[in-house]
């Protein structure tokens, strides 16, 4: 894959908890950036799903957070750090269908317990670190073919 990239590209977005009206803006901008430099459509699809789910988790659960991305000729890395409640049991949180989202969030069609599994499914490496009462950091890498 010949990418139109001469140096590493990185960016950062601030996310505000509860701000559903701007949800998806970070992921949309990242999607356009990846398309601009000629990244494969399937990679863009995976990166977009993973990033949007991460963005939603910050908006649903945390007070605030930051989404950083780093694009190199070989991969894209996305790191999301939040100031949120943290995850008590990561193993449980990774199970499809498990969610601690409140009822009103579920009524919007979020909180189906698919967010973290979707992120993992769409990245080549996926790590989640969390401290209860402090926050959560998710790091995902998607390698270019």
């Amino acid at each position: 894959m010949a990418l139109n990239i001469t140096e590493n590209i990185d960016g950062i977005f601030q996310l505000i908890g509860g701000n559903f009206s701007t949800a998806g803006e970070a992921s949309t901008q990242l999607k356009h950036k990846l398309a601009e430099i000629g990244v494969d459509e399937e990679i863009i699809r995976r990166a977009t799903i993973a990033t949007f789910e991460a963005e939603m988790n910050v908006i649903i659960y945390a007070a605030a957070g930051w989404l950083h991305y780093y694009i190199t000729p070989g991969s894209i890395k996305i790191r999301i750090e939040d100031m949120g409640p943290g995850i008590e049991n990561i193993e449980l949180a990774m199970q499809e269908g498990y969610s601690t989202a409140p009822e009103w969030v579920r009524e919007m069609g979020w909180g189906a317990g698919m967010g973290l599994p979707n992120m993992k499914k769409n990245s080549d490496t996926f790590t989640v670190d969390s401290v209860v009462g402090e926050g959560t950091t998710v790091e995902m890498v998607i390698n270019f073919p």
Binding site: F20, A23, G24, S27, T28, I49, M108, G109
Partner: peptide
């Protein structure tokens, strides 16, 4: 890509999903 999406959700996040 290119699917039509049938839903009963009406809030603005459906736009981001469809666009993405």
């Amino acid at each position: 890509k290119g699917n039509v999406w049938l839903t009963l959700q009406t809030h603005l996040n459906i736009v981001a999903v469809a666009s993405m």
